[in-house]
Design a protein around this nucleic acid. Structure first.
Ligand SMILES: [Mn+2]
Ligand SMILES: [Mn+2]
Ligand SMILES: [Mn+2]
Ligand SMILES: [Mn+2]
Lengths: 219, 219
DNA sequence: ATTTATTTTTAGATTTGTCTAAATTTATTT
DNA sequence: AAATAAATTTAGACAAATCTAAAAATAAAT
């Protein structure tokens, strides 16, 4: 089945909200979509008719299984494009969301499969969010950018977004790799650099430029 | 100024038609856009108001300078995406047009500049059509795929779309490079292979798989 | 120069997505 | 339990993009 861009955006909006709240209500979605409650109601009727939503008037709503599948395929596209934009085109990861918001609506299934392969089937987007596979299956752990890791919190390096030879050389020198325990001991505001403790013994300083390419998870 | 997808498609349609006919008429554009004459008239009024078109009722129309600039920026996006899809993602060049028809409407200027650099600022798309630069300037020569070159017609190799090591090794063996004179002497229908004369002396057989990656120009 | 045919435009309808304002339902207070 | 507040839906409007059918303008043919 085909969906309009507006329908796709609404489906994705419901998905994100129901991850947190279970049932979603009209005002919340209106707020998420930067639109008005009346417009949301109209859209809900349409999506219910297309069997994307379980929806009872005044009672809130959530996605059907089919709805979830569609949401995940849009999220998959969004995050793969974000990955492409940062890793291949060198975009700052703050800028990629808005562009991926448009790219996620390109319809070709073959395109997204080939893009996925071209990128090496990445599991996480530049913000550390998991990328669903073509069946909608989501990697479980949640990653955080090292710059966002709370001070003193113990974490594990889970991925590095810049895979250039220079970056890898630098990480090798610091003995940082996938699975390395890491902990921020100090955050210098002057240049954004971090003092980090690695493997519970070595301590070193990472520039913001390096740190923002490193992702970690914890718990 | 911002344009809708439909407006952009119409602007591009006018551009292509006026390349051949100078002034464009309503029915021709309706045919090109797979729509009806009445719909075209509505769109013309809107585009005239936005100063994209010079248009007098019943008299035909053509793009203003601004209209041309916009058309070229859309064509630039279209052809860069086509190049990306074939060279980076490995799409068959017959399939890329439909997908680029969607991708050309992604709005970010920065995206297209970075994509252009990532691709190595190519001058021609996979079909041999020239890619306008960011100022709208178009490379002059027209390229043809070697498979499309009329038999016996003398031509010059102008580009190769597959730049893999294997392909380059093969071309080196055949002594084929950019600027090499080439001429088809026979076309075997059984497997699509070509017998070609290179440099006016050597003759060799190129498989269809090789030949379809070679582009030439003539005159 | 009329008549006929073709092209183009207008008039009016339809679908999609949005809005405001009013009505209705549900939730919260007194 | 009644009154008030908040959330949600309905009713009615509008802009964008399309269509069909009819009218008007232009071109071609007799
Ligand atoms: Mn979007
Ligand atoms: Mn993201
Ligand atoms: Mn298009
Ligand atoms: Mn092309």
């Amino acid at each position: 089945m085909k969906f309009t861009i507006s329908e796709e955006n609404h489906i994705k909006g419901v998905y994100h909200l129901q991850q947190q709240t279970g049932l979603v209500n009209t005002n919340a979605l209106a707020c998420e979509m930067q639109t008005k409650a009346a417009s949301v109601t109209d859209m809900l009727k349409k999506l219910k008719l297309k069997k994307i939503l379980q929806y009872e008037k005044y009672k809130g709503f959530k996605l059907t299984e089919m709805g979830k599948k569609i949401a995940l395929s849009i999220i998959r596209k969004h995050r793969l494009w974000e990955y492409f934009l940062t890793v291949k085109l060198g975009f700052d990861w703050a800028k990629v969301h808005a562009i991926a918001e448009e790219l996620e609506h390109i319809s070709s299934e073959e395109l997204i499969q080939k893009l996925d392969d071209f990128l090496g089937n990445p599991s996480f987007d530049p913000h550390g969010d998991p990328i669903p596979d073509s069946f909608g299956k989501i990697p479980t752990i949640k990653q955080y950018n090292l710059m966002q890791l709370p001070i003193k919190k113990k974490a594990i390096v889970s991925s590095v977004s810049n895979q250039s030879a220079q970056m890898l050389e630098m990480l090798k020198h610091y003995k940082i790799g996938i699975g390395t325990p890491i902990q921020i001991t100090k955050h210098f505001l002057f240049d954004g650099s971090l003092e980090v403790k690695i493997l519970k013994n070595t301590t070193c300083i990472l520039s913001e430029q390096v740190a923002k390419n490193i992702f970690v998870y914890y718990e």
